[in-house]
């Protein structure tokens, strides 16, 4: 019984299934594409996509993005982020061979960015950049959600003071390395619109302080997002209800583009 029925059945079906699975497995590998394959492909199409490691030794990218998850592009379905989207807008106008380096680290707070810059790790990319986009502060502020009502106000004051110090430090460091680059900082929007009016106040104070620091430098732009997002949270936020989605990043990039470039058109 086993020899005559079960075994032929078992072995034959296992063989057929194995062939099918091998086929599916190979297909999976092909459609997911090797990382290496994609790189070579994209490189020929769009030279601006060359990652930092394979850059020619002479220098850094033209656009450098520093900061947190929003700088990184978390939530963007197309994974372009502000930088790529900005670049796409730029290319509509004129052919460029601008390159981007994205050194953002999701979760970064202002103090961590200050440490990173102080460490000198990004010195070459800062020195070579024409445009440096900063996105920082959101995590400093967001951490306060853990505080209770009594400690919230003093905690906010403290966080804001630290942030101001860090941002001032970051600005002066960048300027000491690269006095000429155009800087831009992405302002904060309120992902919790209706929740708590107190929160909104804090956020506006925060943005206000950022603006004051931005104002102290001649080539530093503030990119407002609060107003852009307020009435369109559903449309602009990704499913995590915190980070922007592709559309959100697109409007930020468009605003950035308008603020920095419209006059040249």
């Amino acid at each position: 019984m086993f020899k005559k029925v079960v075994w032929p059945l078992v072995s034959a079906s296992a063989l057929i299934l194995a062939l099918v699975f091998v086929f599916g497995f190979v297909t999976s590998i092909i459609i997911s594409g090797g990382e290496a394959d994609v790189q070579t492909e994209t490189q020929t199409e769009s030279p601006e996509n060359i990652p930092e490691e394979v850059m020619p030794p002479d220098g850094a990218s033209d656009i450098l993005i520093l900061g947190d998850s929003i700088g990184f592009g978390v939530g963007d379905e197309e994974n372009l982020g502000i930088g790529e989207r900005y670049l796409d807008l730029l290319e509509e106008d004129s052919e460029t061979d601008t390159t981007i380096t994205n050194s953002s680290v999701p979760g970064f707070e202002s103090s961590q960015l200050a440490d990173l810059i102080e460490s000198g790790e990004n010195r070459t990319s800062i020195a070579g950049a024409e445009l440096i986009i900063l996105s920082i502060g959101g995590n400093d502020l967001n951490r306060l959600n853990l505080e209770d009502n009594v400690t919230l106000a003093p905690a906010f004051e403290e966080a804001l003071n630290i942030y101001k110090e860090d941002l001032t430090f970051i600005l002066s460091e960048i300027r000491s390395i690269n006095p000429d680059a155009q800087l831009a900082i992405i302002g904060l929007y309120n992902p919790y619109s209706e929740d708590d009016p107190q929160n909104a106040r804090f956020l506006l104070d925060w943005n206000h302080e950022t603006r004051l620091i931005v104002n102290s430098d001649a080539a530093f732009a503030y990119i407002p997002t609060y107003e852009l997002f307020t009435y369109h949270l559903d449309a602009y936020l990704s499913p995590d209800d915190f980070h922007p989605n592709g559309m959100g990043y697109q409007v930020i990039a468009e605003t950035l583009f308008r603020i920095l470039n419209y006059s040249t058109n």
Partner: peptide, 23 residues
């Protein structure tokens, strides 16, 4: 696909579910 450490959906394709299940 992965590109520069981020997900890239440019190369995505649309396939029926049974093929997807097989994969």
């Amino acid at each position: 696909t992965l590109f520069e450490g981020t997900l890239n959906s440019d190369s995505t394709i649309l396939i029926p579910r049974y093929q997807y299940t097989l994969l």
